[in-house]
Design a protein around this nucleic acid. Structure first.
Lengths: 121, 121
DNA sequence: CTTTCATATGATTCTATGTTCATATATTAT
DNA sequence: ATAATATATGAACATAGAATCATATGAAAG
């Protein structure tokens, strides 16, 4: 009896071990979901450069104040950004440097990897 | 005339420079969107450990073959995974190590950062 | 305390997307 | 050629989520 080209049972057992529990996988997906929106991505890139108030972000992105506020809430709930009040205005800023690293990795994937096109040979 | 607490014009100008063009921001968001789903996250984690055929992934995740195939297509279109045929079966595997790095960064954010709860003092 | 300026939020709407169902394609065996 | 197995795919459906609109909250000025 020859070894099959692809051993199903073996592969399955190998994999079950390294799989994190469902809750963690869900949390991970939820985190990445936050980065999966152009508006939020723009907000984060803006905050890479400087602390900004809501009005400034609204102006920068050319969107309504409401839309921005809603997304700022999403980002804050995910602990990616934080804020402090200064009189009437609310200043937002990056919560930590994980944000930069995560986006940096994604950036590398889409730039560095300019896949060879089929017609290129 | 005193310097205001928060200089709007200055901040805006600082930011406009570092902002990548819209298309790139959109591509970035689209990439992260791929990671923002539990099913796809599970598939990727599975492929961390071993190359797998569709039937195996289907069994591992306890989902329908169709659902898995659809998601495999999404992952492949994003160049996160690739596949090769072995007879009747199709073997899927990770395309490169960007996947590991990106997920790794996300992992750090949600684990390492166990935010201090308000009631903790 | 009323007004104004800055931001937050609830409800609604509209679109995007994950799953299912049915069916198509591809490979191998009979 | 037909059947069986493995995977892919189009259409329909259901839900999630992003933007909008109207309105609420909060701080400061008059």
């Amino acid at each position: 009896m020859e070894k099959p080209a692809h051993d199903h049972l073996d592969a399955l057992n190998t994999v079950r071990g390294g799989m994190p529990r469902d809750e963690l996988l869900c949390d991970l997906a939820d985190l990445f979901k936050i980065f999966g929106d152009t508006t939020r991505m723009k907000i984060l890139f803006s905050l890479f450069e400087a602390e900004l108030c809501v009005h400034e972000i609204t102006a920068l992105l050319g969107m309504t104040q409401s839309a921005i506020s809603h997304q700022l809430k999403v980002l804050k709930d995910a602990h990616l950004i934080d804020n402090r009040r200064e009189g009437k205005t609310m200043i937002y800023f990056l919560a930590d440097d994980h944000v930069r690293s995560i986006i940096g990795q994604g950036f590398e994937h889409i730039t560095e990897e300019e896949y060879p096109h089929e017609k290129d040979f």
